[in-house]
Design a protein around this nucleic acid. Structure first.
Lengths: 355, 355
DNA sequence: TATTAGATTGAGAACGTTCTCAAGAATAAA
DNA sequence: TTTATTCTTGAGAACGTTCTCAATCTAATA
């Protein structure tokens, strides 16, 4: 009683389930039943409890709930950087879906750095996060050291991969149909008459390798030899890699008539190089890129558009499935893409039909 | 013993401080001392504990720590949408700073919706989050209902505002020097000879009002009458408001020689309208906007650049100050901006010197 | 009225930490 | 050797929930 009153004086004090129970004149078990909406409670008790809750403006302590119930109502999203367009659209979609289920989202930027990814996964473990959505930094060549494998393989925390796969770790994966979409995009360029198509992408990522595979098979199908010097690799961390590599391609391959950009981060800086050289699409060169953006519309760039919303939604849905049933069999979901044809691709300038 | 062994078999089981204590042959109090690095522990005990920790790959349960210590090592960032360039750059900076202090970041999108902001603040309270950084939806005219005021005023959770202020709630605020920067930007346009300068912005936000104030005072100083029909208001939620409003201004004010865009979200769609009308900057119209972006560089748009990194950094620093000392006096920090002059502003086309 | 089934309730253990307190061990001083 | 001082240690309470279990109460049936 004494304590209660001293609390009342401080309008900001937070109340516990015991305070509610005392005020309502019932036990905390009964309060728990009303709050948690389980068991059976008489109408009279329920009313008293709800009144007390309202009067004290009581909110249950999620931390205590988490400790007791082993569920923190939290999912973590681990990715390179929230600044990346693909990633922030993904986080947006994930948070939206999570909210619908009263879950919150912890954001973990790895800055495309292995150590930070490991550190985040450790934190996630100790935080008892309920589930993890991971766009891993792990690139195709690299092998996860044994001492960290458990962070990826533990059955305790449901985890799914989005976009990038980690070879050797079996997890659900949700991604665009990279190979097929890339095959079709390349075929489109070929159908316009292009035979020398330069490619810019961060080769180390599984996604890009899939896209390259589609590129190669389209060329092969058309009987065009694959010239690996037309494929240039962008370090993810390099600032304005697109600009440097576009310049390299343009300098070394004067016969190149189209550029195909596989990473969404690269396109802007490729355009900067074109601007610098006063080259226009599609007259001077054709350009096709992955991932849509306001820029793409403003510059009329033909684009393979990923349905990031859909990927995010599926990721959350699948994660919740796994949270309910951790034994659910692993599988990969491929989300369709859309080739949005604008005006950046034309017939090759050296071709009879070209300008 | 039995239990331990059955746990060992399941390689994924997580261990508790009791398991470590048992394996090390000490009490959990001693383990706690080693983990938490306080009190005094003999070298012998310390070694045994560390070995046990390593062997079991023990990580402390943050939830239990949180319940006991009343600190969850979490800060929440509440903002309109992570998709917004300003916001995602801010979150990026905040997460980076928070990581340095071993704090994690909970992301809360309000979708510029009042109810969602309230809901998030309630969740934040029940989650025992240690601190909140808020870009509120609350617009200048609106008053927070009494029943929700405590969510903003509670002394329990340190909270600071970024970018937007809420009139009537006294909190720390960190923002750009909106009025001064806007005054100078306008002055720059005036110095080029413009007298009819259209303005597009979401008037309801305190930031925009500050920027308008700077705009007006620059005009007044130059003896130019302020024509309020040149200032058009963009609903935040409207898709491509910039395009519609640019069209409106261009249609209704043929004498307008410059457009001044106050929201970063609007510029892209303003450009779309210019593109549609085949108008070029600076020849057909001058354009000046807030917030930098790849687009601005590609289109050579003169821009008031906000130092979002710095704002984020200061926000976290200040929040931690408040977490240590909640009584610390409230104040506002204004971060300087930079007017990056590119090529989108020229002399008015109807002027003697113009095209 | 006695009996039974079902509804309602509260006491108290458990979740995994932190941290106080008092006791025991080790060392230094007398 | 005894006494004082400092180190080192473990038992157990506390944080705020959830949830089991047994007890009580109600109403219906025989």
């Amino acid at each position: 009683m004494f304590e209660r009153e001293s609390r009342m004086e401080n309008g900001n004090q937070t109340y516990t389930i015991d305070d509610v129970a005392k005020l309502a004149g019932v036990s905390k078990a009964t309060v728990g039943r009303v709050i948690g909406n389980y068991g059976s409670v008489s109408e009279k008790s329920r009313k008293k409890v709800l009144e007390a809750v309202a009067q004290l403006d009581y909110v249950p302590n999620t931390i205590a709930q988490g400790l007791r119930s082993h569920s923190t109502k939290t999912i973590a999203v681990v990715l390179g950087s929230i600044k990346n367009d693909y990633c922030n659209a993904l986080v947006y979609a994930i948070e939206k879906e999570a909210m619908k289920r009263d879950y919150n989202v912890l954001i973990c930027n790895t800055h495309e750095n292995l150590d930070k990814e490991i550190k985040h996964l450790q934190t996630i473990r100790s935080r008892q996060v309920d589930g993890v959505i991971l766009i891993s930094v792990y690139t195709v060549g690299k092998v996860i050291p044994d001492r960290y494998r458990h962070l990826y393989e533990s059955q305790n925390i449901p985890m799914i991969f989005v976009d990038r796969n980690i070879i050797g770790i079996k997890k659900d994966l949700i991604q665009s149909n990279n190979e097929q979409a890339s095959y079709e995009a390349t075929k489109y360029l070929i159908s316009l008459g292009h035979r020398r198509i330069g490619v810019i992408g961060t080769v180390a990522y599984s996604t890009v390798q899939e896209r390259l595979k589609g590129y190669r098979s389209a060329l092969q199908e058309a009987g065009i030899p694959v010239d690996s010097s037309l494929i240039v690799d962008a370090e993810y961390s390099e600032n304005r890699a697109g600009q440097r590599l576009a310049a390299k391609l343009l300098d070394e391959h004067p016969d190149m008539t189209a550029m195909y950009v596989l990473n969404n981060t690269l396109c802007g800086s490729v355009l900067l190089e074109l601007k610098k050289r006063d080259m226009k699409t599609p007259d001077d060169i054709s350009l096709l890129t992955w991932d849509d953006d306001e820029i793409n519309e403003l510059f009329d760039i033909t684009t393979v558009v990923q349905r990031v919303d859909e990927i995010g939604k599926r990721a959350v849905n699948r994660l919740f499935e796994l949270m309910e049933n951790p034994q659910s069999p692993i599988y990969t979901q491929q989300v369709s893409t859309q080739l949005v044809i604008r005006k950046s691709c034309g017939t090759p300038r050296n071709e009879p039909g070209g300008g």
